[in-house]
Write a protein that binds this DNA or RNA. Structure first.
Lengths: 68, 68
DNA sequence: ACTTAATGTAAAACAAACTTTACTTAAAGT
DNA sequence: ACTTTAAGTAAAGTTTGTTTTACATTAAGT
């Protein structure tokens, strides 16, 4: 799964720690998500989308390899 | 988190087993998701949305209690 | 009554998300 | 040079998603 978290964070000028606090996870979790290769929970993804005032699909997108 | 999986399944006339096979999980996983009280992964939620040709937010929605 | 298909549910086991602690590096400000 | 802030990373531990196997229930068809 791809994601544009880093870009969205930049738009709002949030640090990883800022975002982590707002959505209630650790900073390392945000860092790991940005690195990719990490399948976060739907609730967390929805929270992140809400914080960035956009749709989840605008931030997180399936890749070919996600279909096994 | 609320979800309208059951309704979406009905629209397409899919059984739980049908859906499970299409997204690559077990039937029990689909059943558990429909029951609610279950925070599925984002990749799985995106796959489900894609199968139903709609946006993830149309199927899965945050509730107050999801914010801790 | 019998069979079949769909669903509900449960327990044990496994895989993966997420936390905590902690150390490192890079950039920017003073 | 020194300090501070943001980011990268790693290992151990806890929690939770997901699978597997298995059995029960309900509705529909014959």
């Amino acid at each position: 799964m791809k994601n544009s978290l880093k870009v969205e964070r930049a738009k709002k000028d949030f640090t990883q720690a800022d975002l982590a606090e707002r959505v209630g996870v650790s900073r390392q979790t945000i860092n790991a998500i940005e690195k990719g290769s990490y399948n976060l929970s739907t609730i967390l993804a929805l929270k992140i989308a809400k914080i960035f005032e956009t749709e989840l699909e605008n931030i997180f997108q399936l890749e070919e390899t996600d279909w096994k």
